[in-house]
Design a protein around this nucleic acid. Structure first.
Length: 461
RNA sequence: CGCGGGGUAGAGCAGUGGCAGCUCGCGAGGCUCAUAAUCUCGAGGUCGUUGGUUCGAAUCCAACCCCCGCAACCA
C-alpha cells in the first residue's frame, strides 16, 4: 500500500476531444484504477489548458469572451471523460482560482530564487503572422516566409527568461540514472541526446497577451501558456499533499516539456521532479496523419456509439503496443470488437452462463486478485500485453470447455466441471477490472449466487 | 540537409545471435453449451537490396533502395 499519482496532459481548449486525447486519458485511468485495486491511495488528474492568444482569437470568432469559449470546450472534455467512465480525482482548469494562485506563487518563487532574470530581455525577431511565431533568418527564402510567401514583420518584445541552461547537468544526471524515469527507453535516449546538445534559456512571459495569468513581479506581462499549464500538476499535488507525481502520461510531442522544462522548473523552486514520464505513440488514420485540416479526426462519441464504453476502452488499448504509433482504421477496430469482445469474451460468458443456469449451478466461493502476470505487465505499462495475456486466459477457457464437453456430463462430474469454468471466468473478470470496469462488474454480478443467462455483453456488429 | 520511426505469410503485427511466430483472412474436419459463435489440423514467408562479421544473422556491422513522421492546427 502506498500513494500513486498519475496525470494526463491538460488538453488545450483550442481543439475538441478526439481519439488521441481519449487514448491518453483511458490509459491513465486504467493505470490509476489498477493502483486503487492494489490498495494504493490512487489519484488521477486531468483537465483543460485554457489561456493564450489562440484561445482569445477562437473566442472572438465565436463572438464569445475567452472564458465563455473555454467553458464550452472544457465541458466537452469533461463530459467525454464522464461518459468513458474515467475515474479522475479532479478535472482541473487553468482558469480555476486555486490554480491561478499557485501559478503566481510558483513564478514568484522562481523569481526569488534567481531562476528568472530580474529584468526582461529584449527579444528582436522576424515575426510571421501566418505562423504566429518568430522565424529564424535561415528559415526565410529571399526574405519571405517559404510557406506564406509574405515578408515577416520586424518585431521586438520584452520577455522574462527562465534560466533553463543552469539545470542541464543536473537533468542529465537525473534522467540517465532514472531518478526521472523516461519511458519507453528510446525516448529517454532521444531526450538525453537532445540535452547533450545544450539547453537554452526560455522565455516565460508575453508582453501583449491579455488572456493569461499576470506575472506576479511585473503584472504588465502575462505568463506564457505552457508554463502556466505545466504547473497544474503541482496545484493539485500540493493541495492533496501527494507531491511528487508518480507518472506523467503524455504524447510523444510534448515529452520535452514534461521531461526537461517541467522538472527544471520544479528544481528551481526546490521541489521534487516527477518520478516517471511515459510517452505513448500517436494514431494515424487510415495511413494518413490525423489532422483537422484533412478532416479525418475521430471523436470519442463515434467510438462509444459503435463499441460502447468498455468496448471503446478495450479496442483503444488492444490495438497497438503501448508506447508505439499505430494506424487507426474502423476495419481494425471492428475486427477487434467482433473477434475479441463478441466472439471471445461475450460468447464465453454466454455459453458458461447457459450451462450453469440449465443445471442450477451456483457460484463457487473463492478469493481473487488480479493475476500476478497481469499485475506485472500493468506496472511496467505494457497495457496491450496485459490484455493479450487476459485474452489467452479466455481462449484457454474456451479450449477447456471443448475438452470437458460439459453437455455430455451428469451429476457430480458436471458440477465439478462447471464450477471450474466459473472460477476461470471470475479470474478473468477480476483481471479486466482496470480496463473494463462495467463489464467486469456485470460478469461478477452474473456469476454471483445462482448463475443466470443475461443479454449479450457485446452484440456483434 | 538534419532528426526520428519503419520495410517479416494475402492483410495487420511480434520477434534484437541458436529449428521464422501471433491475430485476422483462406482450406479441411470436429462439436452443438454459446452471440453463424467454439475446438482441431492444414496451406501460405529466399525476414527491403547488396556485401561483411560469426560455427550460426530477421537479429550485429557497412553501403544502398523505399515508406512514414517532426520543421504547419494536433494526444
Amino acid at each position: 500500500m502506498g500513494k500513486f499519482f498519475d496525470t494526463t496532459p491538460i488538453y488545450y481548449v483550442n481543439d475538441v476531444p478526439h481519439i488521441g486525447h481519449t487514448y491518453t486519458t483511458v490509459a491513465a485511468d486504467i493505470i490509476a484504477r489498477f493502483h486503487k485495486l492494489q490498495g494504493d491511495d490512487s489519484y488521477l488528474l486531468t483537465g483543460t489548458d485554457e489561456h493564450g492568444a489562440k484561445i482569445s482569437q477562437a473566442a472572438e470568432k465565436h463572438n464569445q469572451t475567452p472564458k465563455e469559449y473555454a467553458d464550452t470546450i472544457s465541458k466537452e472534455f469533461n463530459e467525454a471523460w464522464d461518459k468513458l467512465n474515467i475515474n479522475y480525482s479532479r478535472f482541473i482548469r487553468t482558469t480555476d482560482e486555486d490554480h491561478i494562485k499557485t501559478v503566481r506563487e510558483f513564478l514568484q518563487k522562481m523569481y526569488d530564487n534567481d531562476a528568472v532574470d530580474k529584468e526582461p530581455r529584449l527579444y528582436k525577431g522576424l515575426y510571421c503572422v501566418g505562423h504566429e511565431k518568430f522565424m529564424s533568418p535561415e528559415e526565410l527564402v529571399d526574405g519571405l516566409c517559404p510557406d506564406h510567401k509574405t515578408a515577416p514583420i520586424e518585431y521586438s518584445e520584452e520577455n522574462y527568461y527562465f534560466k533553463l541552461s543552469l539545470f542541464q547537468k543536473q537533468l542529465e544526471e537525473l534522467i540517465s540514472t532514472d531518478q526521472i524515469k523516461i519511458r519507453p527507453e528510446t525516448r529517454k535516449n532521444e531526450i538525453l541526446g537532445k540535452l547533450k546538445q545544450g539547453l537554452e534559456d526560455i522565455s516565460i512571459s508575453r508582453a501583449n497577451l491579455e488572456w493569461g495569468i499576470p506575472l506576479p513581479f511585473n503584472p504588465k506581462h502575462s505568463i506564457y501558456v505552457w508554463i502556466d499549464a505545466l504547473i497544474n500538476y503541482y496545484t493539485f499535488g500540493k493541495e492533496k499533499g501527494i507531491w511528487p507525481t508518480d507518472l506523467h502520461l503524455v504524447g510523444k510531442d510534448i515529452l520535452w516539456f514534461h521531461s526537461v522544462i517541467w522538472p527544471a522548473m520544479l528544481l528551481s523552486v526546490g521541489e521534487q521532479p516527477p518520478k516517471e514520464v511515459f510517452a505513448h505513440g500517436f494514431f494515424s488514420i487510415g495511413g494518413q496523419k490525423m489532422s483537422k485540416t484533412i478532416g479525418n479526426v475521430i471523436k470519442p462519441e463515434e467510438l462509444i456509439q459503435k463499441y460502447g464504453v468498455d468496448g471503446t476502452r478495450y479496442v483503444l488499448l488492444a490495438a497497438f503496443p503501448f508506447g508505439e504509433d499505430g494506424d487507426f482504421s474502423w476495419e481494425l477496430f471492428d475486427k477487434l470488437y467482433n473477434g475479441n469482445l463478441a466472439n471471445g469474451l461475450g460468447n464465453l460468458i454466454a455459453r458458461v452462463a447457459k450451462l450453469a443456469q440449465d443445471n442450477n449451478i451456483s457460484e463457487p466461493k473463492n478469493d481473487f486478485a488480479i493475476s500476478e502476470e497481469v499485475s506485472q505487465l500493468i506496472q511496467n505499462y505494457h497495457l496491450n500485453a496485459a490484455l493479450t495475456y487476459i485474452w489467452n486466459q479466455i481462449a484457454d477457457t474456451d479450449k477447456l470447455i471443448n475438452l470437458q464437453k460439459p453437455w455430455t456430463l451428469k451429476g457430480g462430474e458436471l458440477e465439478t466441471a462447471l464450477k471450474e469454468l466459473i472460477l476461470h471466468i471470475k479470474q478473468i473478470a477480476h483481471n479486466l477490472q482496470p480496463f473494463m470496469p462495467e463489464t467486469s462488474e456485470k460478469i461478477l454480478k452474473q456469476f454471483a449466487g445462482e448463475v443466470t443467462v443475461q443479454p449479450p455483453l457485446f452484440p456483434r456488429i
